[in-house]
Simulated scan of single mutants.
Amino acid sequence: MTLAEGDEGTYTADGTSPVEKFQVQVVPVCTGQATKVTCMGKLGGELDLTMDSGTTPFKWHKDTTEIVASEKYGAIDAMTLTIKSLDDDDEKEFKGTSTDKIARVFGVQVANCLGAKGTVPCQAKLNEALKLGISDTVSDTVTWVKVDGQLPANNLKVGANDVGLKLKDLKAADVGTYKATYNSDMEVFFAVSVPAGGDTKNNKKDNSGGGSSSNNTSTDQVNFGESKPKPEDGSGVGGLSYSPALLVTVTLVHLLLQLAA
Rank of each mutant, 00 (worst) to 15 (best):
M1P: 10
M1W: 09
Y11V: 14
V19F: 07
K21T: 15
Q23P: 06
V26K: 07
C30A: 08
G32N: 04
Q33C: 06
C39M: 05
M40Q: 09
K42R: 14
E46A: 14
L47I: 13
D48A: 08
D48T: 09
L49K: 06
M51C: 03
G54E: 00
G54T: 05
W60N: 04
K62A: 12
T65S: 05
I67Q: 11
G74V: 13
G74C: 13
A78Y: 01
M79F: 00
D88M: 11
K92G: 07
K95N: 10
K101S: 11
A103T: 13
V105A: 05
G107T: 01
G107S: 06
V108W: 06
A111N: 01
G118D: 09
P121C: 11
A124Y: 00
L126I: 13
L130C: 01
S139P: 05
T141L: 03
V147Q: 15
A153Q: 14
V158R: 05
G159A: 06
V163P: 04
G164C: 00
L165E: 01
K166G: 00
L167W: 00
K168S: 15
K168H: 10
D169N: 14
L170I: 13
K171I: 09
T181N: 00
N183P: 12
D185T: 07
D185I: 04
F189N: 12
D199A: 14
D199Y: 08
N203I: 03
D206K: 05
D206R: 06
N215R: 12
T219Y: 01
V222D: 02
N223P: 01
K228V: 10
P229M: 10
P229H: 08
K230V: 12
P231R: 07
E232T: 14
D233L: 09
D233K: 08
G234Y: 03
G239F: 02
Y242N: 13
P244G: 10
A245T: 12
V250G: 12
T251V: 15
L255N: 11
